[in-house]
């Protein structure tokens, strides 16, 4: 398997309430292409911060991160934006769909940003919404969809530009356990069929159980790792 993400000595500090907070305190990790991985930890352990840095949404205070061997610290903000657009898809706890736009337009958004022509955009978005099982809900707005459906739209949007990495920040946090399980199962299917790398931040052990590898984060450090089939 080829290495897709490598993080070396990641430190992230920020000021909160006038005091410096160390959200990440020297994280090293390597993720192979096609992995289905969970990052677990209590709230405040730095999971989301790590995910944002892995997704090129934020820059680390120290250390570096390489995606397919490209050092992100050497890229400009504009190049990072392009990378997010092409290589990375985000799925959030609160879905983060744009409320005034229907499912199709939400899925089309990353394609529009990439400059994909209108018809192709529409075709691709319809394809993706069918793939996530929402073929009959395409023109519904987020407030007309259930939580599970909204998260499926978000997954379709994450897949829009066919990125190789999908980052999920508590994707089941706002769903009941049954719907949450369905969403994770969908992700697993996509992982198996397309070989996309999924990194799922969660504090739900049931979700983590469905992944192949779990990284445990505590106080900004990786404190443990568990592979499926291993005790």
């Amino acid at each position: 398997m080829t290495e897709i993400i490598r993080a070396e000595g990641l430190v992230k500090e920020y000021i909160q309430g006038g005091r410096p907070v160390r959200a990440l305190d020297g994280v090293d990790l390597v993720i192979e292409e096609g992995e289905f991985l969970a990052i677990m930890g209590p709230s405040g352990s730095g999971k989301s911060t790590l995910l944002h840095i892995l997704g090129a949404l934020d820059r680390p205070t120290e250390g570096r991160i390489l995606i397919r061997g490209v050092d992100l610290s050497k890229l400009s903000d504009m190049e990072l934006a392009e990378l997010r657009n092409r290589e990375i898809g985000f799925v959030f706890q609160f879905f983060n769909l744009i409320p005034r736009m229907d499912a199709l337009s939400n899925v089309e958004l990353p394609l529009a940003i990439a400059g994909v022509p209108r018809e192709e955009r529409r075709r691709r978005a319809m394809e993706l919404l069918k793939l996530v099982g929402l073929g009959d809900r395409m023109t519904h707005k987020p407030n007309e969809l259930s939580g599970g459906e909204q998260q499926r739209v978000a997954i379709a949007r994450a897949l829009a530009n066919d990125p190789s990495i999908i980052l999920c920040d508590e994707p089941t946090g706002n769903l009941d356990s049954k719907t949450g399980e369905e969403v994770i199962r969908l992700m697993k299917e996509l992982n198996l069929e397309s070989g996309k790398t999924f990194i799922i931040v969660t504090h739900d052990p049931a979700v983590a159980q469905m992944t192949e590898r779990i990284l445990y984060l505590h106080d900004g450090r990786i404190v443990g790792e568990k592979r499926r089939g291993m005790p």
């Binding site: 997704g55 903000d77 504009m78 934006a81 990378l83 983060n96 769909l97 990439a114």
Partner: peptide, 16 residues
Amino acid sequence: TREIGILKAVGAKNRD
């Protein structure tokens, strides 16, 4: 603000 965050997450540049 949140919408702007979403736009940036899905790859919108500052210029966009």
